[in-house]
Design a protein around this nucleic acid. Structure first.
Lengths: 210, 210
DNA sequence: GAACGATGCGGAGGTATTCTCCGGTTTGCC
DNA sequence: GGCAAACCGGAGAATACCTCCGCATCGTTC
């Protein structure tokens, strides 16, 4: 559609290559050090100057947003998969929230900038989050119409819960058992008593009604 | 007992005064700017040099720990009050967790350093947290013996939940309704279905069985 | 009350990090 | 091949955390 090079002088190849190289390096660096790692260190590891890094990504948020792009698409895919393969609205919402938690913990320390981004309107991360909040709202509404989710809860609250769960799971004190507990508690937080008898420890039992 | 000035040459008065002045200033500063505010700014506002600030409190954590001291005692008081005035273990645990959330949100951004402190053994904040985790464990065990709380949950998980709830409530997106939702979801997270029929919106109904 | 030793004070400054500015170079287009 | 636009990269400004050390102040002792 907008591919016509009208007024846009075609992006230079070296810039394009630098950009993707930066993304590769940042992906690895953030995986190792967490998202709070030094920007200049990324530039140095990529063999470029700070200026180049900041030209491509004006701040940490922009870099993070670009890094998350691929995972965003994966998460969108997960969404349509759940929509098509899971008919039970309760299970669908639960699976979606699990996917959200996984997305939110893609990098160590990611929940913090996400929460911060929710406060600022123009942030690229905020846009992404807003989309996922809307999706959460969809799944939630379906579950509520089935009577499987409490009516007082809103999509943003569930999204915040997922974010908070991911944040808490990142604590050094939190082991695998804690993470499971937190997820389970979150689930019985929105589910009604009437909905499916799974109280806590059922490990997402892949019950696709194919 | 250890008041005998053996080997300790009695603390100087000006130092003591400086210390409490720093605490006053920091209290106000953190209340305005959140706990991530600049240390040097606190020193400047207190009219002292950074060196003096850091002599009294070697780092931000120590300063925070000292600031929280008063509130810690208030929280301990709340604990004994709950223990004496509330016989229902479910309600007691719920009240305690509400008090914890309030403590955790005493300053804007406080949950973050608390979570970080849990990772480091020698931190003064970690000690405090550990005490409250133990208290949480006590309330939880009582509730579990009444069959009012799920047996799989641990005290640390509940503490983490409270911390995470406070963290999420600090998001700009979170309004009062979100905070209430989060607390309600947390509660139905640990409570069994059998325990009291209060699902969400009961506003802590002061039912002291005197 | 005066001198002395221990203790506290405070600012200069080292290190780290984020981000900007600008001269020099490379690239794409004609 | 030449030109203008875009890009590169490092120097460096701004800020924050924290340390070091000469000097001042306090408490004690004579």
């Amino acid at each position: 559609m907008e591919e016509a090079p009208i007024g846009t002088r075609k992006p230079r190849l070296d810039a394009e290559r630098n950009r993707s190289h930066i993304l590769d390096v940042a992906e690895q660096y953030f995986s190792e050090q967490g998202v709070a790692g030094s920007m200049d260190a990324i530039a140095k590891r990529a063999g470029i100057g700070p200026g180049t890094l900041y030209r491509h990504f004006p701040n940490r948020e922009a870099l993070l947003a670009a890094l998350l792009q691929a995972r965003n698409e994966a998460l969108e895919g997960r969404r349509t998969a759940i929509e098509h393969e899971v008919s039970d609205a309760t299970e669908a919402l639960a699976l979606w929230l699990d996917a959200l938690i996984e997305w939110v913990t893609a990098f160590d320390g990611l929940p913090e900038p996400l929460r911060a981004a929710l406060s600022e309107e123009g942030s690229p991360l905020a846009l992404t989050c807003q989309g996922f909040i809307t999706t959460t709202e969809c799944f939630l509404r379906a579950a509520q119409e089935e009577g499987a989710a409490l009516p007082g809860v809103r999509g943003r609250d569930l999204f915040l819960s997922a974010l908070a769960t991911g944040w808490a799971s990142g604590a050094a004190m939190a082991d695998e058992s804690s993470a499971r507990s937190l997820r389970a508690m979150m689930r019985s937080g929105w589910a009604t008593r009437a909905s499916g008898e799974a109280p806590a420890d059922r490990p997402t039992p892949e019950s696709a009604p194919e």
